[in-house]
Simulated scan of single mutants.
Amino acid sequence: MEWMDGARRTGGLMWVAAGIVFGIVRVLLGDPMPGVVTLTVVAAVLVLAALVVRPAGRATVLAGRVVAVLLAVAFAGAVADRFGVWGPPGGAGVSWGSWAAFVDYTQVLLLGAPTPIAVGAAVAATAAEVALAAALLTGWQRRWTGKATAGLLTVYLVAMGLSVGWAEVARYAMPVEIGGALLVTVAVAERVEELVPCS
């Protein structure tokens, strides 16, 4: 288990470092800055990365929980967006605004796949995001949930990079989020004593 934690720690830190460099380069090339929500996730992941490099016991566990909650909120917010909760398509801060717009976007990510395949992928992505958001919020199987989150985000990174472009990957800080998900897997308390403050 220890060597697996080490591999995920190293992988997570590499994703975070590469993501920060990638994001800075993209902004310097003229791409828009990520939004407030994305920057909040990035800041929390950077704190977690620093604590993972120099473990600080409860602080590391707490930072891992904060990142897990932020990733869950990002998933839940994306799901809400595709059902119009944040406003109609084209509204300020709205990525999709409707299920139909999300299916169209999914079709673009799948490089023009037929509509039935895009609908199936949109349903699968939504179900996965809801399940992962719930697991991240509750802390259920944090190691497996973090790995599954990193896997799903990697699929999104590749699909976005190949279809809508690397500027979108940078705008959502996908590499940093992948690294954060991996770091969540190693910021887990092994014993109850690690979670309970000493008197």
Rank of each mutant, 00 (worst) to 15 (best):
D104Y: 06
Y172A: 08
L28D: 02
G112R: 13
A150P: 01
V108N: 00
V158W: 15
L70M: 04
Q141T: 06
A59Q: 07
G91S: 07
I117T: 11
A72F: 11
A68F: 15
S98A: 06
S95F: 07
V73W: 13
A17M: 01
L48Y: 09
E2P: 01
V42Y: 07
V108S: 02
A17Y: 04
R8P: 00
M174S: 06
K147I: 15
V21I: 12
L111A: 13
E177A: 05
E129N: 04
T38Q: 10
W144D: 08
A100Y: 09
R171L: 15
E194H: 15
L195A: 08
A74N: 06
G139K: 03
G165H: 14
G11M: 12
S163G: 10
A7L: 14
G30N: 09
T149H: 02
A18W: 02
R65P: 01
A131T: 03
T154Q: 08
A63Y: 10
A133R: 11
Y156N: 02
G77L: 12
A18Q: 09
S95H: 12
A43D: 04
G35H: 12
V103F: 09
L110W: 14
T38E: 13
G91A: 13
A122P: 05
G120V: 06
R26N: 13
L39Q: 15
L46W: 15
W99A: 00
A78G: 15
L109C: 07
M1Q: 11
G120E: 08
A125G: 03
A189Y: 14
L183M: 01
A150M: 08
A118R: 03
P114A: 07
V21E: 04
V184T: 14
R8I: 07
G6A: 09
V103P: 04
A148R: 10
E193G: 00
L71I: 08
G77K: 10
L13W: 05
S95Q: 14
A128W: 08
L132S: 05
I20A: 00
V42M: 06
D81I: 06
R54C: 01
E193W: 11
G165K: 10
V192H: 12
L48D: 07
M174C: 00
T154S: 13
A148M: 07
A92I: 10
A127T: 09
G19H: 02
G93S: 06
E2T: 12
G30S: 08
I20F: 04
T126M: 01
R26L: 10
E194L: 11
K147S: 11
L111H: 15
A150R: 02
T145P: 01
A72W: 13
W15M: 09
L70G: 02
E177I: 03
A181L: 06
E190C: 03
E2L: 03
A50E: 06
G91Q: 10
